[in-house]
Amino acid sequence: MSRRSRTAAVIERELRTLVRTRSLLAVAAAFALVVIAVAGGAVGAPGGYVSLTLDLLTVIEVLVPVLAFGVIYRSIRGDAERSELDVIRTYPVSRAEYVVGVYLGRTFGVLVVVAASLAIAGALASFTSPSAASFLATHSAGDSPIVFVRFAALAMLYALAVSAVITAASAAARTTREALAVGVALVVAVAVGVDLAIVGLLSGDVVGSGLDVLLGVSPASAFRGLVVELAVAPALAATPPIPAASPTASLLGLAGWTAVSLGIAVLAVWR
């Protein structure tokens, strides 16, 4: 029995759980409705894909952590609560295989919901976009579906990182109440908390320069910076003289959050 097969068994179990749990389906539907509603509200407004991307940027920034929390926080904690984790430990499955299986299975669900919601939003924009060029995208080549495709791809990266953080909370918490509290705290921290800390450092002159790199430390800022730099900026006629964020630092930031969170989850799930 290979490592891959054992991980695949855990992934399959998580996917079946997602499909069969009505509350998770409700969370997914609510997320999709909000994204589509925001996209629908922008229909007919000037700006096309660039405008839609900017409209959805904050929504995705805040709601992806909420979606990941709803889908993931009870995964490992639920197994522990039922003492099923103790049963699983008697099988030849390692901590890493189990955690990675749970993470991949649940995160796949998150990614599908995010991708489907954004696909519908993008389709709405493509069918209803006004023909006139907007002031945001001043030439037709700039405002192309590529802008929105890049935004969606970066939203996936953001979802991967945030899902890893919630997986760690689910593994490290010792009670459901603790998982709930830690999960909510992490959602707030990921969505706004780290950003506020960075603003605090700047306002206190603790950090003078290198803001573009520092923003990579916060998952939300890293995502926002990547969207601005890699999706929106190429579509603009005039490139801002000062970069909003360092794409390299932002990518490393998201990768770091993902890796460190999964590492914590593997260490904490059982000892």
Binding site: S5, T17, R82, S83, V93
Partner: peptide, 24 residues
């Protein structure tokens, strides 16, 4: 364990099949 419980939403057969997969 003392109070065994299994992942909700699965049948008894599916539960055993999952554990068989883990055992290879």
């Amino acid at each position: 364990p003392q109070s065994p419980s299994f992942r909700p939403g699965f049948t008894a057969a599916e539960t055993l099949q999952f554990y068989a997969s883990l055992a290879g």
